[in-house]
Nucleic acid binder design. Structure first.
Length: 423
RNA sequence: GGAGAAAUGGCAGAGCGGUCGAAUGCGGCAGUCUUGAAAACUGUUGAGGGUCACACCUCCGGGGGUUCGAAUCCCUCUUUCUCCGCCA
């Protein structure tokens, strides 16, 4: 969430930049400012009342000690009224703070200056493209057909065991999946990220910290019995490592990577465009995540983008990078680059990574700070990105690497799979 | 799942219902000393709100209560530890 002092100091810019998301935030911003004003006034009134009560209590204590019980009792009378006032003020303050927070939760992050305005995902800006699109033989198939042909992914079996969107990977399909996970983790570790294994269920506070709660709980599976949520991405447990943490400046930057299954309800999305591996309720993803000094978070974002590029170059998959427009960028993000792999057999681009800088938006919720050079606590910047999301990479490999003899395994993966072809 | 014990500042660890934001030790930071370092000594060292800056207010796991007054008493939740049961 945005910081109130920031909103106050940059009111016009905030409104102008939120317009990039097609939001007219004028009223919300003005309400925030006036609620905050209200908050401070009420707080001051309350504080004065409490100060008076404290003084009275001390006097009463002193009077009792010196044996003047009668005078003490007289003073007690005065506290009754005071208690009533402070109680009312406390309630009023709580209401104001709640209203203020509810409002702040509704305001998305301020887009970076480079984010293009736009009304649909069509307006995302392609900034880079690399890799040759293979020319496939005439009988080339989409990946769900290939999965069936080589018996490596069983969607029907998943339907039986769980339901739609929970595929079962079999034999070389399962092994290829594991190979990709291991490969990505190794590459990320080489690039300086520390590997973590994280919980797959998170509590409410964690969901809140990264912004999935309170508004987007519909995205997550909820275990009501224990009030826990299945993670939609490793970003949630990963970033919450740093909830309520004050780092030393010297500890920055921090980079971590982790593989987790991800669970998403994806309510309401059905149809041809979600066939096969294109959109699942459970999928695997390797994530990279950073905590950065504000002064270099955009440099860090560039480094993350450069790193993800190397993975795709190594896999020899044709890809492009999009700078998301205001209509498509996530609620918590200031700037997001999406990576898409070209799926030849489907003749379409598949999103396989999303790399974002959240600036202080998450840190503010998380209370993730570092002690800066002046010895003051300052919010850090958080960033994360997929490196990479498995199913669509798998789809890309199956489709782009298919030959009449079978699916050729990309060279860099062979040490991990132990085989060179799926046939 | 059952029975007990506990939860205090970066860590360890005191704390009688009033003067406790909290002793003490360690650690951290600054300084003295030293060619430099160590040791020793001196000082300093939680977070949030508020203010131009002070003042002032809040926070001793979370929430609620008793009281003029709560880290201290009561209720409740959570977590941790020990024992039992179950178990990869």
């Amino acid at each position: 969430m945005l910081q109130v002092p920031f909103i106050k100091e940059n009111k016009e810019t905030v409104i102008k930049q939120l317009a990039v998301r097609n939001i007219d935030a004028t009223k919300m911003i003005e309400d925030v400012i006036s609620l905050d004003e209200d908050r401070r006034q009420t707080q001051t009134l309350l504080d004065n009342g409490l100060a008076e009560a404290n003084t009275l209590s001390k006097e009463i204590g002193d009077l009792y000690k010196s044996g003047k019980a009668a005078e003490a009792n007289a003073l007690k009378e005065k506290t009754t009224e005071l208690k009533e006032t402070t109680k009312n003020l406390t309630e009023r303050l709580n209401d104001i703070v709640e209203a203020l927070n509810n409002l702040l939760y509704k305001i998305p992050n301020v887009p970076h200056a480079s984010v293009p305005k736009g009304s649909t995902e069509e307006d995302n800006e392609e900034i880079f493209r690399e890799g040759d699109i293979p020319v496939l033989h005439s009988e080339a198939l989409p990946h769900w057909e290939l999965a069936k042909k080589y018996d490596i992914i069983d969607f029907e079996l998943g339907n039986k065991i769980t339901g739609a969107g929970f595929p079962v990977y079999k034999g070389k399909g399962a092994r290829l999946q594991r190979a990709l996970i291991a490969y990505f983790l190794d590459k990320n570790t080489e690039a300086g990220y520390t590997e973590y294994q994280l919980p797959l269920l998170v509590n409410e506070a964690s969901g809140f910290g990264t912004g999935q709660l309170p508004d987007k709980e519909g995205q997550m599976y909820h275990v009501t019995e224990d009030n826990l949520y299945l993670i939609p991405t490793a970003e949630v447990p990963g970033t919450n490592i740093f909830r309520d943490v004050i780092l030393n400046e010297s500890e920055l930057p921090i980079g971590i990577t982790g593989y987790t299954p991800c669970f998403r309800r994806e309510a309401g999305s059905y149809g041809a465009h979600v066939r096969g591996l294109n959109r699942l309720h459970q999928f695997d993803k390797v994530e990279i995540l950073r905590v950065e000094h504000p002064s270099r978070s955009y440099q860090a974002l560039d480094e993350m983008v450069a790193h993800v590029k190397t993975l795709l170059i190594d896999l020899k998959l044709p890809y492009r990078i999009l700078r998301l427009c205001g209509a498509d960028i996530g609620f918590t993000s200031a700037l997001t680059y999406d990576f898409e792999v070209f799926s030849t057999a489907q003749d379409r681009w598949l999103e396989i990574s999303s790399v974002s800088n959240f600036e202080t938006f998450q840190a503010n919720r998380l209370k993730l700070r570092f002690k800066n050079a002046e010895g003051k606590n300052e919010l850090a910047h958080t960033l994360n990105g997929s490196s990479l999301a498995l199913p669509r990479v798998l789809a890309g490999i199956l489709e782009n690497y298919q030959t009449k003899d079978g699916i050729v395994i990309p060279d860099v993966l062979v040490p991990y799979t132990g085989f060179k072809i799926i046939d």
